[in-house]
């Protein structure tokens, strides 16, 4: 092993060098010096990087997240209202304002609700759980995944309460990965992955409350669309520049609920 190669491998991971590198270092004082210097530097780097002080109250704040995330808006209003002697006046005023708000939103606002948007966020979160598979597709290795046979895809879909209208559809749209998933706890859903033009195209079907309106979402890497479909939702997600419209048309016309 020449010195450049030795240095390259040691510097990539000085704290856990491979046995081959340790052997080379024990045979060559110059190599041993390189290894010692790299480990010394890495100890300094580690000390500098981890010397960032962490806010003293951060752990407490994080431990309170489950409690605050579990309290619904309605419960919060009830708790606060119960402490007020003017509860009835506030309630009447709130009802009036709520009526105006609802009317206004129906007339002027046809966008997705906060709950709708949360579904897109949950899907993006889920994609980063399946990151290794998604990344394999983006590297052009999607065809390394064997096409899932129709019976297996049908079983995954059936568990989520859906089915394809015809097997011909599956032949035109080979599914490379099919698995059950749980985007929202207690709602069984299906996750199918196909090879798109930019990487993976994920198709989720979930038997939860349909969103109020079809909407698109994106982050710095993915773009997606949530489509309300009768008894649930279908969600398509691809890489940022993937055109999802062809998939949307095909799947929306070929998936039906069976529950």
């Amino acid at each position: 092993m020449d010195e450049i190669e030795f240095r390259r491998r040691v510097y990539a991971n000085p704290q856990s060098p491979e046995q081959e590198l340790l052997d080379a270092a024990s045979d060559n004082p110059d190599y041993q010096k390189i290894l010692d210097q790299a480990q010394e530097l890495d100890t300094d780097v580690s000390n500098a990087v981890t010397a960032i002080s962490v806010p003293a109250d951060l752990q407490d704040k994080l431990l309170k997240i489950p409690a605050s995330a579990g309290i619904s808006g309605e419960e919060l209003i009830q708790r606060e209202s119960a402490n007020s002697s003017y509860f009835h006046y506030y309630a009447a005023a709130a009802t009036f304002l709520l009526a105006i708000g609802v009317t206004f939103s129906i007339v002027f606002n046809s966008g997705p609700s906060v709950q709708d948007i949360a579904l897109g966020d949950n899907v993006l979160d889920h994609l980063y759980i399946d990151f290794e598979e998604i990344n394999a597709f983006s590297r052009g290795e999607g065809n390394n995944f064997e096409i899932v046979n129709a019976a297996n895809v049908s079983q995954i879909l059936a568990n989520a309460g859906t089915q394809f209208l015809s097997n011909d559809f599956m032949r035109s749209m080979p599914v490379r990965v099919a698995k059950p998933c749980e985007i929202i706890p207690a709602f069984q859903s299906a996750h199918l992955i196909l090879q798109g033009s930019r990487g993976a195209v994920s198709v989720f079907v979930i038997n939860n409350s349909p969103v109020s309106v079809e909407y698109r979402f994106r982050d710095d890497r993915f773009n997606g669309v949530v489509i309300p479909m009768g008894k649930g939702n279908m969600i398509l997600v691809g890489e940022e520049t993937e055109n999802l419209d062809p998939y949307k048309d095909l799947f929306a016309d070929n998936v039906e609920w069976v529950i």
Binding site: D121, N122, P185
Partner: peptide, 13 residues
């Protein structure tokens, strides 16, 4: 905080 909120939501996964 956002990270752990999201982790809490998707903890079952």
């Amino acid at each position: 905080q956002e990270t752990f909120l999201r982790a809490w939501r998707s903890l079952d996964s």
